[in-house]
């Protein structure tokens, strides 16, 4: 059980693909000016990442090492094309708002990265958990940044108008870049603070144990 907890926490927080590993920067900068598009892109990536991880993990013994990358690309491209068909059929508004970024998921380094670094070395279940965790980590990061950018840049949240005061720059990729940088800084600071507190606590416990042993 601990193994799955570690995979989940790594994907969501400690190895968060957007804020810690700085992967998937292209869709991040392109889409976080709208919270709705950001969340839509994130959820699409969750589905594609989970399925691609599972398929690649299942096929890892069949695919020769020499052609593994072309095989991964073919699998990912198929899933992306399938996702595009589904979105165009059932969620046309989201399909239109994602524009070219939807097709660019094929070359999203989070998906190829997880296939290469995780899925081809682990079981199908572990790969599925990793795909969901990393996908949700990506979705949460994009959505939170999308909410901030949309609020500042357009004065709205998920398309609902809230205030008339706006700072136009935050509706552009330049504004997205600033919010992205600040988010990385804040997230890294919080993680460092958490790890430092954890280390201090561990050291204190170790010292107390040592003192107890000496006293005994």
């Amino acid at each position: 059980m601990n193994k799955y907890k570690k995979i989940t926490l790594d994907g969501l927080i400690f190895q968060n693909p957007t804020l810690m590993l700085v992967l998937g920067t292209c869709p991040t900068l392109g889409l976080i000016s709208s919270a709705k598009s950001a969340a839509g892109m994130g959820l699409t990536v969750v589905v594609i990442l989970t399925l691609s991880n599972m398929i690649i993990s299942a096929l890892k013994k069949l695919i020769p090492n020499e052609v593994r990358i072309p095989c991964y690309i073919v699998v990912i491209a198929t899933l992306v094309t399938f996702a595009r068909m589904l979105l165009e059929k059932f969620v046309p508004d989201l399909y239109d708002s994602l524009g070219g970024f939807l097709a660019l998921i094929v070359v999203n380094c989070i998906i190829l990265g997880r296939a290469e670094a995780f899925a081809n070395k682990h079981t199908v279940l572990e790969s599925a958990v990793d795909g969901i965790a990393n996908g949700l980590g990506f979705t949460c990061a994009l959505t939170v940044m999308g909410i901030v950018c949309e609020f500042l840049g357009s004065g709205s949240l998920f398309g609902f108008h809230i205030m008339s005061f706006t700072i136009g720059m935050f509706a552009t990729p330049a504004g997205s870049f600033i919010i992205y940088g600040l988010s990385i800084a804040l997230f890294t600071y919080i993680i460092n603070l958490f790890e430092r507190n954890k280390r201090v606590k561990e050291n204190r416990l170790a010292r107390e144990n040592l003192l107890d042993k000496e006293a005994a």
């Binding site: 392109g30 000016s33 709208s34 598009s37 239109d96 708002s97 994602l98 524009g99 070219g100 552009t172």
Partner: peptide, 13 residues
């Protein structure tokens, strides 16, 4: 209303 596009990455804006 805006429908399909070719190469317009920022059409969502």
């Amino acid at each position: 209303t805006v429908g399909a596009n070719v190469g317009q990455s920022f059409i969502g804006k």
